[in-house]
Design a protein around this nucleic acid. Structure first.
Lengths: 167, 167
DNA sequence: ACCTCCACTGGGCAGACTGCCCAGAAAATC
DNA sequence: GATTTTCTGGGCAGTCTGCCCAGTGGAGGT
C-alpha cells in the first residue's frame, strides 16, 4: 500500500496543508501552492488529482452571499411526514427553488429543511409552500436571526495536521 | 444610475449566467467564460470584480466531501439556552472542531447546531461536548440519515435569468 | 437636440502558469 | 536487499492573465 493511501480516506499532513492553503486563498495556482508548501510542482498536482479522484475534493464552487444577492432571510423547518412518503416529500421540496438544503433525520422530526427568502412576505409564501407539500403531517419552523458559526471545515483540517495520516 | 447597478444588490441576467457557468465548471478561466457567454473578456473580468466588490461573490473555496475524509456522520442539535447566554454559548460551540455551523433562531429552540463525527462513538463524544456547554438548558439531537437535497443555490440563480435586474 | 457618462468591444503585449513528459533520488514495503 | 511508489527538478509548447487603449452605443441629464 502507498504510505498515503488509505481506504478510510484520511488526509496526509501534506494534503491537509494543501487544503488549508486553498481554503484561505482558493485562487492560488498549482505553482504558487508548491512554492508555499515547499514541495515540487508535480507533487502538488499529483496530490490534487488524487484528492479529486478519491472524492475528497469536490471542486471549487463559487460561494455566493445570498444576503448580498437579495435573499436576506433564512429559515429552518422540521417536518414530520406520513409513513413511507419521505422520498416523495423530498422530491416535492427539491422542486421549490428557495429550498436550499434538506436532510432526512432520526428523532421526532423526519426532515430538516433550510430555505431562504427575500422578505417576510416572501418567506411566508415559501414556508406555506413547504408545509403544504402533500405528506407533511406536522411542522415546526424557525427563522435564523444570526449565524454565530458560518459553515466551516477549517478546524477539522487543522486537526489533521497533527495526525501523520491514516489510523 | 447604471443599467446594471442596483443598491438592493440583485443580479443582472449576465451576472446570473456567469455565476451559473461558474457553478457548473468552477475552474473555468475568465477567457473561457467570455467565450461561452458570448461577451468580451474585459466584460467578464469587470463583472467578476464587481460581484466580489459588492460582496455577492465571496470566492471559490475548495469543497470537501467530509464523508470521504473520514467524517461520515452528521448530526443536528437544537439547543435551548439560559437567558442572555446565547453569545457565550455560541463561542464555546465555536471552539469545538466538529461543530461545523451554528445558527441562532426564533422558535422554541435557540440555537441550531450542525456537527460531524468519524464514528458512532465519536459522535457520542461530540454530542456530549455540545450538550455539556455551560448555559445549555435543553437539547434535542438528530442524526442525519441522508441528504435528499444537498446545499444548493442553482435554482435561485436560474430564476434570476428571467428577471432583467433590480426590482 | 446635444452632451456626458458608462459599459462593452476587440485588439495587443509581456509575463506567468498549466498540462505533460522524463530521469534520477528518496523513501516505504516486502 | 529488491521492489514499488513518491517526490524532485527540469524542459517545452500552448494558453491564460493582468493591463492598457481607442472606438462604439445606449441612457440620462440639460
Amino acid at each position: 500500500m502507498a504510505p498515503t493511501g488509505g481506504e478510510g480516506g484520511v488526509l496526509d499532513e501534506l494534503d491537509a496543508r494543501l487544503l488549508l492553503l486553498l481554503t484561505d486563498e482558493p485562487r492560488l495556482g498549482v505553482l504558487e501552492c508548491s512554492r508555499r508548501l515547499g514541495v515540487a510542482r508535480g507533487t502538488v498536482q499529483a496530490r490534487l488529482d488524487r484528492l479529486v479522484r478519491r472524492g475528497a475534493l469536490r471542486g471549487f464552487p463559487p460561494q455566493l452571499d445570498l444576503a448580498a444577492v437579495g435573499y436576506g432571510l433564512t429559515a429552518f423547518a422540521i417536518l414530520e411526514i406520513a409513513q413511507g412518503r419521505r422520498q416523495q416529500v423530498a422530491e416535492r421540496l427539491a422542486a421549490i427553488d428557495e429550498v436550499c438544503e434538506v436532510h432526512a433525520t432520526t428523532g421526532q422530526g423526519d426532515l430538516l429543511v433550510r430555505m431562504v427568502a427575500r422578505s417576510n412576505a416572501d418567506l411566508q409564501r415559501v414556508i406555506d409552500e413547504v408545509v403544504d407539500v402533500e405528506g407533511v403531517t406536522r411542522t415546526s419552523t424557525s427563522i435564523a436571526l444570526s449565524t454565530p458559526v458560518p459553515p466551516r471545515v477549517r478546524p477539522l483540517l487543522e486537526r489533521s495536521l497533527g495526525e501523520p495520516a491514516e489510523r
